[in-house]
Write a protein that binds this DNA or RNA. Structure first.
Lengths: 216, 216
DNA sequence: GTTTACATACATACACGAATGTATGTATTA
DNA sequence: TAATACATACATTCGTGTATGTATGTAAAC
């Protein structure tokens, strides 16, 4: 009915984002109308169209909220004074810990994996995911190359392929984890699930030694 | 305008399924209307409603067409006279070979991963995927247990967890493969991508020896 | 071998709700 | 008083489901 102060308007914006996140996760992106979101938030479509230009814009704004938290993860993967193998090991665990502790990340991750189509009208989303995947794989590859220079990799391991494999394993585990969210098996046995791949990539369980591992 | 013979009607049905598969893959399931499919097939919605009761029914019929081919894969995983480790190794390669050779499987797989929402109205799909995942993991676990009885597994490996890990790795690789379909990296380096996990699970590269491996 | 009767395989037309985008109203607040 | 932060109202489009039309195939009756 009336205008609120800027602060309150910002609150409404976040309320809309939170609500949309919830409803998207429950009914899918294509499956929810803007009226659904507005009603769930106790507002009208007018409020949505005031803050966002359309559903895609709202969806993008919603996704952007988790970028900083993921960037922190990646930053710690790239620079840390422990040896590269341990960095990768810790990074894997940190990812799932974050996924477990952060309901927002969990929901957005779930929406991307199960709650939205990435073709046709949503194709830009797919392109984003592709570039994000490539960047992530490049970072993993960089750390693996660093490990190779320190002679931590098994002889027949190609850092690029190992990066693709690791990234795929993470993605697959996240997917399995999302499919059965109340099943704590993956969360409780993450180390045992990741170990085989690390065993196959690195020599002598070096990823369990947090030593800086003097570079050449 | 008129009735065709049963044979021709069956052709129309398959034409509709093929066309729907194509259009779903291009524009997403929620993103395509029945009119889109009919137009792409050179027919009208009347033809679709004659053969199927609605879009979900059409979609299910479309998915069911690949079940037999997947069952053949699973059958060969479970009974074969080579040792269980080799069976798993060959099964992994057979999966990707099938995915590479069979465009229909590739498209349906793509639709499931990127072209449809699995929540809300499509939730039954999610339940199907969960039960299918559990069955698949159970089969992998069964073969891994068989390997354990033949002392092919490393000592600290739990067959159930290894099954989850393997299945996740497969799923993740398929996802990566779908994201960049024209990139042949995964297809050409599958062995190098799977090797680390096998190395971490099994002893002494036993999966490369097709010997029956006399049971206890 | 026709004719008749009915089922089949669609096309066409219609009625309805749902969703979107926009235009306008309105009470604040700065 | 002018911009803000929404609510309300409206027009339009799109998709669905169903009802109906219609030409052909199919089989039995005669």
């Amino acid at each position: 009915m009336a205008r609120k102060t800027r602060e309150e308007a910002e609150q409404t914006r976040h309320l809309l984002l939170d609500t949309a996140e919830q409803v998207f996760w429950e009914k899918g992106v294509a499956g929810t109308s803007l009226a659904d979101i507005a009603a769930a938030a106790g507002l009208t479509r007018g409020a949505i169209y005031w803050h966002f230009s359309n559903k895609l814009d709202l969806f993008n704004a919603l996704c952007d909220r988790i970028i900083p938290e993921l960037e922190i993860l990646d930053a710690r993967l790239l620079d840390s004074n422990v040896n590269p193998a341990t960095r990768l090991w810790q990074h894997g665990h940190a990812m799932f810990a974050l996924l477990h502790d952060n309901p927002r990340l969990r929901r957005i991750c779930g929406i991307h994996h199960l709650g939205c189509e990435q073709v046709g009208e949503m194709a830009p989303l797919l392109l984003e995911q592709i570039s994000w995947t490539q960047e992530k794989q490049a970072k993993l590859q960089q750390v693996l190359q660093c490990a190779q220079e320190q002679h931590l990799l098994r002889d027949d391991i190609d850092p690029k392929l190992a990066a693709i494999g690791l990234h795929s394993l993470y993605g697959g585990l996240i997917h399995s984890w999302l499919l059965a969210q109340d099943d704590r098996t993956i969360h409780h046995n993450l180390s045992a699930l990741l170990s085989p791949y690390f065993e196959g990539i690195f020599k002598e369980r070096c990823w369990l030694q947090p030593l800086p591992c003097a570079a050449e």
